[in-house]
Measured scan of single mutants.
Amino acid sequence: SEIVVAMYDFQATEAHDLRLERGQEYIILEKNDLHWWRARDKYGSEGYIPSNYVTGKK
Rank of each mutant, 00 (worst) to 15 (best):
G56M: 12
D41L: 01
S1P: 15
Y26N: 01
D33K: 07
R22H: 07
E14A: 13
R40D: 02
A15V: 12
R38A: 05
W36P: 01
H16V: 08
S51Q: 06
S45L: 14
D17W: 15
E30V: 05
R40G: 02
N52K: 12
E25R: 06
E25L: 10
T55M: 09
N32D: 11
Y48F: 13
Y43S: 08
E2V: 11
G23W: 05
A12S: 12
I28M: 01
E46C: 06
D33T: 11
S1R: 13
I28G: 00
D9C: 07
T55K: 12
L18A: 01
S1E: 14
Y26A: 00
Y48V: 06
N52Q: 13
P50V: 03
G47V: 02
E25H: 08
D41Q: 02
I49W: 02
A39C: 03
N32P: 14
D41R: 01
Y48M: 14
R38I: 09
E46N: 03
K42F: 06
Y43T: 09
G44V: 01
D33I: 05
K31I: 05
E25Y: 11
Q24N: 08
Y53Q: 06
A12N: 07
W36T: 08
G44H: 04
V5L: 07
D33E: 08
K57T: 11
Y43A: 08
Y43C: 09
R40V: 07
Q24G: 09
K42Y: 07
V5M: 08
T13Q: 12
L29V: 08
S1N: 13
S51E: 04
G44C: 06
S1V: 15
K31H: 07
K57Y: 12
R38E: 03
N52A: 14
R22N: 05
K42R: 11
G56H: 15
T55F: 09
V5R: 06
I49D: 02
V5W: 10
P50F: 05
R19V: 10
T13R: 13
K57M: 11
K31W: 05
D33F: 09
H16P: 06
W36Y: 09
Y48Q: 07
I3D: 01
D9M: 04
K58F: 14
I27E: 11
M7Q: 07
A15P: 15
Y8F: 11
K57E: 10
E2K: 08
A39Q: 01
L34S: 14
S51R: 08
I3T: 09
I3Y: 09
